[in-house]
Design a protein around this nucleic acid. Structure first.
Lengths: 214, 214
DNA sequence: CCATTTCTTGGTCGCATGACCAAGATTCTA
DNA sequence: TAGAATCTTGGTCATGCGACCAAGAAATGG
């Protein structure tokens, strides 16, 4: 009867414990995507995983801890996916395009993950516990912002507020899961392509400006 | 002891009942904005309004009914605001710009309303009850989509998928409340201006195309 | 093989919630 | 003003929740 391990992840973690935690997090993700944040109780998650509800308490202790793990897992998965997808883009324009396309494709192939992430961040967002949601958002915006700013400094992007553009872009891509859910028949590849092109138009230095600048 | 009136709004509604309903809805909006969907219980809303909790049950019966009214009220307010703000725009480009700027200004001057709306739609979104959230979203997207399509037909906008652009734009403007909350010091007028300009760039027919077309 | 640790179950506990109700207060109406 | 309709309160009720616990099952390792 030991676990109670929150952040103290001192490499002590038996094989079986790691497996259980993974199973529970996965079940939580699917349950969140199915029934939403409000109805994602330990009982429902446990039922979905085919285990006892008390077992979740044993491995996670607090409910917030489980949801933090959900956020962390989905985040790590998405980061890896996007990093791989951006790859060795030669220009900032290309990197931005690949980022957008990569995200759309990720939403398509990991719908439950993205829906679950949204549910958790929205669910805990209104309260003072929303520290997680706020820092999460700030981090996403910050990364995009920096990328856009560097693109400007390299003369690839026109003059705009990187912060505003980052917020705007983030909103656009966060709206995608809902759209794919509302219209399951959407041609995802075409969607990705057109969205990235739209933002390319919005951020790139105009042809006339480029002529002027040269 | 009669009310129990859901949709049956047969113009019978005493002055005092209408006033109470309004007061309760207003308290619900402020409570939702304060503590979020999950913690917006009858008890808390009643406390915020300085009335008994049972009184809410008397006037609304179901909790969903109250939240529907919240959505309806905020929606009506926003529709009126936007309609007035768009006014008699001469071109679709101008109408789109005014729409975007109007929305940003609305978010700024009605933060509680917008936050509450988001909380309700997100809170009930995951479940099968999400009918409301879905139809609400579909309606918003639909209106934007039609406006964009007409702009294309009039030759003001370039060739893009109106549906995708509508979803993208909706995401961008729905992200604004969170940004204003995260950075209270934002220059809202400047934000509105630059966002509308950004989308103008994204949707308008390019100068070269216009030359080609002429 | 046995002793110890880890894992799992099923159950109880207190708490918050939405719905409901009986009774009193208030307003309306004739 | 008297009676009826409406409004409001405070309370009870069943439900579902997260947390916790005791006891047994399973794995571990000496």
């Amino acid at each position: 009867m030991r676990p109670r391990n929150g952040a103290t992840d001192q490499k002590s973690r038996s094989f079986i414990e790691a497996a259980r935690r993974g199973q529970i997090v996965q079940a939580a993700i699917e349950t969140l995507a199915d029934v939403g944040y409000a109805k994602a109780s330990f009982a429902r998650i446990a039922e979905h995983a085919g285990i006892s509800a008390g077992l979740i308490s044993y491995h996670f202790g607090h409910k917030a801890e489980l949801f933090q793990q959900v956020v962390a897992d989905v985040n790590a998965l998405m980061d890896g996916w996007l990093t791989e997808h951006i790859g060795d883009a030669g220009t900032y324009r290309e990197a931005l395009q690949r980022l957008i396309e990569g995200f759309v494709l990720f939403c398509d192939s990991h719908r439950a993950h993205v829906l679950a992430l949204g549910q958790v961040l929205a669910g805990i967002g209104g309260q003072e516990n929303g520290e997680l949601a706020r820092s999460q958002r700030e981090q996403s915006v910050g990364q995009l912002e920096q990328m856009l700013r560097e693109g400007q400094e390299h003369g690839e992007f026109r003059d705009f507020s990187p912060r505003l553009m980052a917020v705007t872009l983030l909103g656009s891509i966060e709206a995608i899961p809902a759209e794919l859910f509302a219209r399951p028949g959407t041609d995802v590849a075409a969607y990705a392509k057109e969205l990235s092109m739209t933002y390319d138009i919005a951020v790139r230095r105009s042809r006339l400006s480029r002529i002027t600048r040269a």
